[in-house]
Design a protein around this nucleic acid. Structure first.
Length: 298
DNA sequence: AACTCCATCAACCGCTGCAAG
DNA sequence: ACTTGCAGCGGTTGATGGAGT
């Protein structure tokens, strides 16, 4: 028994939107706000399915969208974020005000991939192409699955909520090859070790909303004021690493990832008291791992 | 001018996670 | 605990326009 379709396909338009359709959608959302996409087309007098309306609004009609070419800074930020997050376009888009996930995804596939190839960098692994080729030649492990592995943030959210009663989104990155021989079946080659010399480190990156954030009910999206509040709650980014003696060090990447690190929005500062002190020199010493980021300090 | 090739990007499709019942 | 419906995400497709021949 399959799920019922999101709309009656026979009675919906497909393809490019007309100006009239755009105007109807804009007018409706101006009055009623975003949300309830399933019922929106009928209410707005549109012969479109709800998903189509949502996409059109989010990717094209939203008033806060930034138009025009990507800047060099945005390019670098996208590359940095992709190296951390992978193809999580919505997460990446969340760090670039005025840009949509679709736009970034397209831009990545058409521009940035080429740019990275021209730099001799594999856009999937963010490692030198020759190292990636060597790794591929010496292992059956897919390139995506080598040194850095990602885990879904969804399960962690639940755990985090139940454990610390905070609504956060986490993404973990772990450097898992710390004790393995470089020629072992892990597929880690000497080239890779040269590129990632700090293979004793266990990286743990979390990106989440501030601890005072409480999840808004779904109906909140109908209220522009709630949306404003939501936007103000900037996420913070922590890098943690372990030196094998359970000593944990951390560093705030808020600045490096392109959003403000201040007292209101960034709780990374708290790590200072609970973790091993890390000097700026230490962080820069690890430049092979953090080489995309500007010098950091607490 | 006509044609082909290619890059771009808007839009679609299928899937997943979450919340409500 | 399970089912269902919705919103959102990421991969893919197809229309379009510009460049090259």
């Amino acid at each position: 028994m399959g799920r019922s379709p999101c709309c009656e396909k026979e009675h919906t338009n497909k393809g490019a939107w007309t100006k009239e359709e755009d105007q109807r959608l804009i007018n409706y959302i101006k009055i009623h706000g975003e949300g309830c996409w399933r019922s929106l087309p009928k209410a707005a007098g549109l012969l479109r399915c709800g998903k189509s309306c949502r996409l059109r609004w989010i990717n094209y009609l939203r008033p806060d969208l930034k138009r025009g070419n990507f800047t060099e800074e945005e390019d670098e930020l996208i590359i940095n974020l992709h190296s951390l997050l992978g193809n999580k376009w919505s997460l990446i888009a969340a760090r670039l005000p005025g840009r949509t996930d679709n736009e970034i995804k397209n831009y990545w596939n058409t521009h940035i991939k080429r740019k990275l190839y021209s730099r001799g960098i594999d856009p999937q692994t963010h490692r030198p192409l020759n190292a990636a080729a060597a790794a591929a030649a010496t292992t059956t492990t897919p390139p995506d699955n080598t040194i850095i592995t990602t885990t879904s943030n969804k399960k962690m959210n639940k755990d985090s909520i139940s454990n610390i009663n905070h609504d956060i989104n986490n993404i973990n990155f772990q450097l898992v090859n710390g004790t393995e021989d470089s020629n072992s079946s892990s597929g880690v080659t000497t080239d890779e070790l040269a590129f990632h010399p700090h293979n004793q480190l266990n990286l743990d990156l979390s990106i989440g909303l501030p601890s005072n954030h409480t999840k808004a009910p779904s109906s909140s999206t109908m209220n522009p004021e709630n949306n404003k509040k939501k936007l103000k709650q900037e996420p913070h980014v922590l890098y943690q690493w372990y030196n094998g003696n359970n000593n944990v060090a951390g560093v705030c990447l808020c600045y490096g990832l392109g959003f403000q690190s201040n007292k209101q929005t960034c709780s990374c500062k708290a790590m200072e008291t609970s973790t091993t002190t890390v000097t700026a020199k230490t962080a820069s010493d690890n430049h092979d791992l953090y080489r995309f980021y500007p010098p950091m300090s607490f």
